[in-house]
Simulated scan of single mutants.
Amino acid sequence: MLATMSTIELLDGADELAKAVIESDVYHEYIEAKQKLEKDVEAQKRISAFNHMKDQYEDVQRFGKYHPDYDEISANIRKAKRAVDLTDTVVEFKKAERELESLLNEISGIIAHSVSKTIKVPTGNPFFDSMSCSGGCASGSCGCSS
């Protein structure tokens, strides 16, 4: 591969950007929240119980409402999921995860739009993603003005 100055500059810029993300407060808060979650014995028990219940739920789903344990297992999985979701360290982790995702989405958008304003960047937000022209402008199904 022939390395040109622009390729080297691009790689250096990517390295600088990656370093900036890793050094950001958002990333450090994410890592800290992840470590707290991994060390939280109660949260790990709840997550493990939920994963076990999820396996049972997948077995039941093959037969749907006709499975004899469908109602019981469906109720139990909702309770297990709620128990996980209400755990403080899980709440902290999910919040930190959303903030890091938001930062990365913003960076992706900036990079994509610096190349071309017509590049569609998934935001992770279904509301905004549905507003982009997923069918392509040639399909006539989108509302953009090309």
Rank of each mutant, 00 (worst) to 15 (best):
S6E: 12
Y30K: 02
M53I: 03
D85Q: 09
E72F: 13
S74G: 08
C144G: 05
K36G: 09
D25H: 07
P68R: 04
G143E: 14
G13E: 11
D25L: 10
S134W: 11
E23F: 06
V21P: 00
G135I: 05
H52I: 09
G136H: 09
N51P: 10
I77E: 03
E32Y: 08
S145D: 14
A14Y: 06
M53A: 07
F127T: 13
A3T: 14
D55N: 09
S24V: 00
L37D: 02
S145I: 11
A138C: 14
A18D: 04
K39T: 04
K117W: 02
M1W: 06
G136F: 07
V90I: 08
T87V: 08
N76L: 15
D55P: 01
K95V: 13
A83V: 07
C144H: 10
A80T: 05
E97L: 09
L10G: 12
D59G: 03
P126Y: 04
P68Y: 07
L37G: 02
A80H: 02
K39N: 11
V90C: 02
C133P: 05
A49I: 12
D129Q: 08
R46L: 15
E32R: 12
E29V: 01
Q61Y: 09
I119L: 11
I47S: 01
Q35V: 12
V115T: 05
E42F: 07
K79Q: 11
S102W: 14
E23W: 02
I22E: 08
V115N: 03
D69H: 11
E97C: 01
Y57H: 10
N51F: 15
N105P: 02
V121M: 10
K120C: 09
D85A: 06
S132K: 12
E99L: 06
E42D: 13
D40Q: 04
A43T: 05
Q35H: 13
P68M: 05
V60C: 00
V21I: 12
P122Y: 02
Q35W: 03
G136T: 08
S48F: 10
E38V: 04
S132Y: 13
V90N: 07
C137S: 12
A75R: 15
V91F: 03
A75D: 14
H113R: 11
C142V: 05
